[in-house]
């Protein structure tokens, strides 16, 4: 795992703190829909907020296979590197 990946993942978790109860622990293995009980609406809004936080565009098909927080961090990290 690269340093930028770890940083991205940490920032994603930090962002999720605003919508996930403090009692829930989040790691790279945490599954976004199943473990965090976020509905599709909340997930899509969160993706949009990530786009703004990192100043990137995350096309919908790039997140269709995303299951865990690490999956998401990987996608975001790749897109950030593109700039």
């Amino acid at each position: 795992m690269t340093e930028s990946f770890n940083k991205t993942q940490a920032e994603i978790i930090q962002g999720l703190r605003e919508i996930v109860p403090a009692s829930v622990t989040m790691t790279g293995e945490t599954r976004i829909v199943t473990d965090l009980h976020l509905d599709s609406l909340a997930v899509m809004d969160f993706i949009m907020s990530l786009e703004d936080r990192f100043e990137i565009v995350i096309p919908l098909d790039r997140v269709s296979d995303v299951e865990t927080l690490a999956d998401l961090a990987k996608v975001v990290d790749q897109l950030r590197a593109r700039d």
Binding site: M44, M48, V57, I58, P59, L60, D61
Partner: peptide, 13 residues
């Protein structure tokens, strides 16, 4: 329609 095609799909608020 967006899913059927091959373009990148971006949503805005």
């Amino acid at each position: 329609g967006a899913r059927l095609g091959h373009a990148e799909v971006v949503r805005f608020r």
